[in-house]
Computed example of a mutant assay.
Amino acid sequence: MNTQEIITKLQEMASEKHKANVVKLGIPEENSIGVSTGDIRKLAKSIEKSNELARELWETGYHEAKLLAALLFDKKKTTMEEVKALMQDVISWDLCDHLCKNLIIRIKGYENLIPEWAESEMTYEKRAAFTLIASAAIHEKKLSEDVLDNYLQLIREHSADERDHVKKAVSWALREIGKRDFDYNEKALLLAHELKESGGKAQVWIGKDALKELENLVKVEGRSRLISSKSQMGKTSRS
C-alpha cells in the first residue's frame, strides 16, 4: 500500500468515538481520523517496514498516521537526527510515549537523548526523557547501577517541573526503577519520601503518586521485577 491507500484504509476504520478521544488529547480535529491504537497496530503488521513510507505518513499531519509511522520505521536505518526531528512535531503525550516505546528505545545510542531531553524546555521532549527511563527500567535487564543511579539523580533534579505531562512521566520513571529489585525499591522509596516531605508542589505530588505503588511491591516467583501486592492478591483470589 502507498501513503494514500493507507490513509484511505485508516479513514475506513475510523469511528466518531475514537475521533472524539483523539481531539480530547489536544489534537486539532482536522488532524484526527479516529482509529484506535490497537487497530493501528494490527494494520502495521500487514505493512512492510519502510522509512520512506513512514516519513510520508508522518508528514500527512494525521495523528493516526504518525502513530502508524512510528511502527513502520526500521530502527536499524533511523538516525538520532531523524528521531529529534520527529519529536519536534509531537503535541500529545500518547504520541510521545508511543514513539519512545516503539521506536526510540530500540535505536542504538538512545540513552544519549535522555540527559539532553531532560534539560529541554519543550514539554514532550522533557516527557520523552522520563518515558525512556521508565521503558529502559522495564526492558533493559543489564542496566548498570551507575546508569540507574544517574537516572534517579535526573528524577531528583527535574522533579520540580509542574507541567502535568512532565511530572506524570517523572513519577512513572521513579516507580519503574523501584520495581527493578528490592535494592532499587529502597532507593526509589527514599527519593519519593524526600520529594514528598521537603519538595515543592510538583515534587510532593510525584512523591505521593510514586509511594502508592512503591510501598506495596512484592517479589513473585518467576518474575524478574517486583509487582504490586494488590495485583498478586487479585491473582490469588481468582485461582
Rank of each mutant, 00 (worst) to 15 (best):
E30L: 01
N102G: 05
I33L: 09
I7C: 06
G34Q: 05
S231F: 09
Q153M: 08
L191P: 02
V35L: 04
P115K: 05
A85Y: 08
Q88K: 15
G38D: 03
K208T: 14
D89M: 02
E125W: 02
K230E: 10
A134T: 09
D149M: 13
D89T: 15
F73D: 10
E16C: 01
K19M: 09
S50K: 09
K49W: 12
K168L: 06
S15G: 15
Q11A: 10
N112C: 01
Q203K: 03
T131S: 05
V23M: 03
S237W: 15
A128I: 02
S50P: 06
L86G: 07
E64R: 03
E186G: 01
M1V: 14
A85F: 07
A192I: 05
T60D: 11
V23F: 01
D39K: 15
W93P: 02
G26H: 03
L99T: 14
E48Q: 13
L67V: 14
S92Q: 13
A14E: 08
V170F: 01
E194L: 00
A192N: 06
N2V: 07
L174W: 00
S231P: 00
G234C: 04
M87C: 02
E29T: 09
E119S: 09
S237I: 15
E221C: 00
H158D: 04
T78H: 08
F73Y: 15
K75T: 14
V23G: 02
L154I: 04
G200P: 08
G199T: 14
N31R: 11
E176I: 07
A173L: 09
L72W: 13
N112E: 14
L53A: 10
D164Q: 03
S135L: 03
I227Y: 08
T37H: 11
V220K: 08
L113W: 08
W93Y: 01
M13Y: 15
Q203R: 04
K84A: 04
V90Q: 05
I155K: 00
G200A: 06
I138T: 04
K84R: 11
L217M: 07
E82Y: 00
A85G: 13
A118T: 04
P28S: 03
A70G: 13
E140H: 15
D149L: 10
D89V: 00
L154W: 04
S171Y: 03
R41I: 08
E29K: 08
E197N: 13
D39C: 01
I138C: 01
E82L: 01
K212H: 12
R106F: 15
D209A: 10
S159G: 13
I155N: 04
L152V: 09
A160C: 05
V220G: 05
R55F: 15
N31H: 01
S46G: 07
